[in-house]
Design a protein around this nucleic acid. Structure first.
Lengths: 94, 94
DNA sequence: CTGTATCCTGAACGATACTG
DNA sequence: CAGTATCGTTCAGGATACAG
């Protein structure tokens, strides 16, 4: 569980993963989908998720630079976990 | 999901809930089970979980003071959620 | 026994500017 | 387009002492 919590640590991490669960995204798409995140935090989260083996960074050659972020198989297995989190919050609101 | 994350926020929160999932506990039992937590943090977490409607504080009259912490129905529903977190971490270790 | 108050430190966050 | 660098702020966490 410590592993999971470490991987999901950070106020915005789950929202980034949630966005990627819907499909792969470019950096600017993520930024547009999560306007509350500063570049720095988004960059930090993506790096963290990359090290946790949750997100894969796919850099395409050429100009302008194109990068796609996708979930790894490990990352996609977070789907049910986040769903459980969502359900609990929705089940018993204040 | 923001609700759940707010309720579980804090590095130690899930461990406190996990302990209470096994049965009700006194303050000193929690402290003994989670030696890494300072009094302040344990106290903070219990207050947070109380406000989130996860934990119930049962103060018995008399001396010395005896307090039992138990999970509410809402709190017990966190069991599967924490299990999902646990499973993910155990499934794909680094 | 069951906590709260105080103070301190380090990490996360947020904005802005700048680079490949 | 896709980030990193820097800097200031804010907040959770840890130690210690003290209170009901």
């Amino acid at each position: 569980m410590e592993i999971t919590l470490a991987a999901l640590q950070g106020r915005w991490t789950t929202l980034v993963v949630r966005e990627l669960l819907r499909g792969d995204r470019s950096y600017s798409e993520l930024r547009a989908a999560l306007p509350a995140l500063s570049d720095k935090v988004l960059s930090d989260r993506l790096a963290q998720l990359g090290e946790a083996g949750v997100v894969h960074r796919d850099r395409r050659p050429g100009w302008p630079p194109r990068v796609r972020y996708t979930l790894t198989a490990r990352g996609r297995r977070l789907g049910p976990v986040l769903q459980a989190l969502w359900d609990w919050g929705a089940d018993a609101p204040d």
